[in-house]
Design a protein around this nucleic acid. Sequence first.
RNA 1: GGGGGCGUAGCUCAGCUGGUUAGAGCGUCUGCGUGACAUGCAGAAGGUCAUAGGUCCGAUUCCUACCGUCCCCACCA
Length: 872
Amino acid sequence: MKKELPKTYSPSSFEGRIYQEWCEKGLFTPKIDKKKPHYSIVIPPPNITGQLHMGHALDNTLQDILIRYKRMKGFCTLWVPGTDHASIATEAKIVEAMRKEGLTKEDLGREKFLERAWDWRAKYGGRIIEQLKKLGSSCDWTRERFTLDEGCSAAVRKVFGILYDEGLIYRGERIINWCPHCRTSISNAEVNYEEQDGHFWHIRYPLVGGGGYLEVATTRPETLLGDTAVAVNPNDERYKHLIGQYLSLPLVGRRIPIVADEHAQLDKGTGCVKITPAHDPNDFEVGRRCRLPMEVCLTEDAKITDNYPKYAGMDRYEARKAIVKDLEAGGYLAGIEPLKHEVGTCYRCGTTIEPMVSLQWFVRMEPLAKPAVEAVRDGRIRFVPERFDKNYFHWMENTQDWCISRQLWWGHRIPAYYCDDCGKTVVAPDGCEVCPACGGHMTQDPDTLDTWFSSALWPFSTLGWPEKTEDLDYFYPTNTLVTGYDIITFWVSRMIFSALHYTDDIPFDTVLIHGLVRDAQGRKMSKSLGNGIDPLEIIDQYGADALRFALATGNSPGNDMRFSDEKIEAARNFANKLWNAARFVMMNLTIEGIETPDPAALAPEDKWILSQYEACVKSVTSNLDKYEIGVALSAIYDFVWDVYCDWYIELSKPSVAAGGERSAVAQNVLAYVLRGILCLLHPFMPFITEEIYQGLPGEEGNIMVKDFPEYDETFVFPAESENIAKVIDAIRAIRTRRNEMNVPPSRKAKVYIETKFPEAFRDAGVFFERLASASSIELVSEFHDDTAIRIITDAATVHIPLADIIDFEAERKRLTAELQNVEGEIARAEGKLANESFVSRAPEKVVNAEREKLAKNREKRAGIVAALEKLQ
RNA sequence: GGGGGCGUAGCUCAGCUGGUUAGAGCGUCUGCGUGACAUGCAGAAGGUCAUAGGUCCGAUUCCUACCGUCCCCACCA
């Protein structure tokens, strides 16, 4: 049965249908076979607030390529999909939506708020999944998970309990990063430092009892209200005698001591540092060491507290102005210095964070980090490209305790309970209502956990942990984690230490890192710039395959890439090329099915294309195994376009037209190689390959579950390949010459070939006629028409009598230039070979190659010289 | 302050562990409505591989320095 392809490639006409077919046949769901090796990936769960953006498109394209490749390679493959509840981001969106209705969280109350949140998730959580499907993602949707679903929640509570019992989770008052906009603490990893223009205010603090003042400097003068000391270095001769004395805090009048602490450095500024233990991490430490009181002067929304009536209720920046003004009026201000400095901002909302002392839950990182570093160091987990392990090590080795509690409602509620009566703390994954100590009523901690706390468990919680499930047993550890470099610290590192600690195993063996997708000018795509490109629009316009191609090609792991119209058009053009090649092949097929070619029946060009095809298989496979996805894809691209289409299809046309046995053999080779191409390309461009495949005669089922081609040396024919290469070389040379001379293709000419390799050219006449505008071809041992043009290739001298249009002067010039070129090459090679140390030290292979090249060029030179003589 | 990426054709980028006359896409120029494809075909032009040293028989590739550029990390008052 023959199937005609429509004339133009129109992806929208079949992509949806094919995806549906895969789903209906359940092809994404693995049939667990313990005899087979597994290959599994867990998706980086997109936020439920999200829309598919180019970053997702890239990330998921790469994952799908790997999954499809391994599936065809015979692995039992599982790609686990899911979404992330994204506590802070989602909550912010919901609060924002409520604000428009004039509602606040508090108006609603926790329960009603959470109802809204789940509604939100129902409404938007599925959207991005649908978008992933459009991309062609072959995820097992029957295993779709959500970071806040029952299984993940159970895992989270279990982990919290384990860590608590081990003393690796603790609750304490520490300085944390507070986001006044999100009204929650955030972890160190969630703080972005941005350079901002600021000022250095120099302030004089008078000594109590007169006798002068100490000068301190600050970038945040409003924190003066919370000062409880000024520190000097214990070895500072200038101030040693003042230690223990008191200063009067300007504007406030509080007596604050002068304390000695190493934190104050001799050579910085005046050597005196104001100490605000409640609002600065360093000062907090100083405060602990020197037993200073803590004075909170800012509220949760970064306003001055009621303790300072003059400034109470003022926003921190407003207060800053007022305080500076008052300091100046009071004669305390010693100077203002402009300053560029790095200011911490919230990675979600961009608000400047405020360090604040607060009672929070923390994970003790040091004991967890050690094995996590080890796993990468000893190679159990590998980053691709490798350089990202430096990033990882640096972060892991310097990490501070992880603040995991959030003052949010949308998330995993902390399974800690406090007794209303005796204050006892109980951590209970299964809940706790009665105090085990006094029988009092227990109240659960109102806070929730950092989103990343649940994401950290994703590779095993999605497979059923802590239950001992079949999936966990078979698919875990997973194999490749694909993600962007921007998320290594947030997520990758936390999955690694979590997995090692709870599952006693690595979460995955390879981390494939990709870069950012930037716009055509190289700028980050962002909402504020409005330069984002919507992958869905691209899919509508060009097809998912073209999008995938554009994202997978032309870049290497870990590097950013640019997305442009040119790129997507090039991708679409390639799809169109393949489409039309397939259309041509299929409209000429009279055979009933595709067979493995019989070497005995093959023509040289058949052997040539099969050899080229095998080389392509080898390259694609080895590059995919190295995660060089872009290189693998361009190997296919080059083979399809430059080798299969430009040459083999053309070379095969005479045979196909000839009919009979030769035609059948050529048709079979055409179809055989086409099928191979489709298989090689399927992981990258699943839709078009499936669509074409299903039109091939005698083929049944779906290409996505066929075997990936294996390199097979029995189809490598070096001798015939060499011969066809010689023919191609000569055809190209003729075309070039004719082009240079502006001979129109319609002007046919006789071609005489003088060659030492007659076997290569003997049956090639028809190729020259069709592809080099030859009217006929004749092999000659000598040629005497001095008015013919001469074209010298490595293997032959081609004579074409075109006397009437030859410009002898131009011809001489060209040949002379060519001679010069060849002589340069000869001189270079001779020089190299004359170099004793090159001959003795370079590998024999290299030396021999040089010798061969020299011989070839000498022969070529002889040909050119002969041609030049004829022109005299 | 520490760490890293990048600098190769007009533009965007490949070039694996050093070894042909350094490649591709786009763009430019020339020709072509050729029976799969003008989303195409056939050709051409275009690069002192940022700069300077070093190692080596040999460096775009390795090392050092330097310039430019981008990013990550860091509590500097």
